[in-house]
């Protein structure tokens, strides 16, 4: 019987090798008696979190993290029943890129959310005003915002102002190159937290949702 660490490590190696078949074999092994959600929580999520940390440390590349995320997203999509939108017990999550058509960062977060079983509202690329309107209409409690350019990142402050006017708490988590390269920027914009890599979003969701899943 393999240990949890061995399984996660093998799964991570398959992802880095972009070996879809091996990753699928490991995740769907018939000899594995764990429930599918346990396999995802114990194999997929730790592997993606570790890859995210390795990217921060400069030990793997963005393309490896991105392609791994796609593989996980595909596998989990096949294993888990699809949810159109959040249901009871989960924080209602919204995801957007602010004023940019280059959406890889948001795409990677979307893959992480899907692979970790978190349903979300996908708002695409929007401006601050539209984003706040969508959050209000959908009752979003946890808003994830990705940016690429500094001026877009600074406009997160406008999103914060709009959220504060809603009269109910909405947690705001930001990510993207400007925040990573300027570590104080997220505080300046009024965000509640910053993701240094896409997979970090899972632990932040747990933190702001009041505990683990």
């Amino acid at each position: 019987m393999k240990s949890r660490e061995e399984r996660s490590s093998e799964f991570e190696a398959a992802l880095l090798a972009l070996d879809r078949l091996e990753a699928a074999r490991l995740l769907t092994d018939e000899g594995d008696e764990r429930h599918v959600t346990a396999r995802i929580e114990q194999d997929v999520v730790p592997a993606m979190e570790r890859l995210g940390r390795l990217w921060e440390d400069g030990r793997v590349s963005l393309s490896q993290v991105y392609m791994s995320g796609r593989i996980c997203e595909e596998l989990v999509g096949r294993l888990l029943p699809q949810h159109a939108e959040p249901s009871g017990g989960d924080a209602r999550i919204g995801l957007a890129v602010l004023e940019d058509r280059h959406i890889l960062g948001k795409r990677m977060v979307a893959a992480t959310l899907t692979a970790s079983g978190h349903p979300f509202f996908d708002y695409g690329s929007v401006n601050a005003e539209t984003l706040v309107e969508r959050v209000e209409a959908d009752g979003v409690e946890l808003l994830l915002v990705s940016t690429l350019m500094l001026n877009s990142a600074l406009r997160v402050a406008k999103v914060r102002e709009g959220l504060d006017r809603l009269g109910r708490p909405v947690r705001l988590i930001v990510g993207g190159a400007p925040f990573r390269l300027e570590p104080e920027l997220w505080r300046e914009t009024g965000a509640d937290a910053m993701c240094r890599n896409a997979s970090e979003v899972v632990s932040l969701i747990d933190r702001f949702s009041g505990g683990g899943r």
Binding site: D100, R101, H102, L148, M149, L150, N151, S152, L154
Partner: peptide
């Protein structure tokens, strides 16, 4: 190119 008042122009749709 998509222009902004406070930053460099960015690419529009590829």
């Amino acid at each position: 190119s998509v222009y902004y008042d406070d930053g460099p122009p960015n690419c529009g749709m590829p």
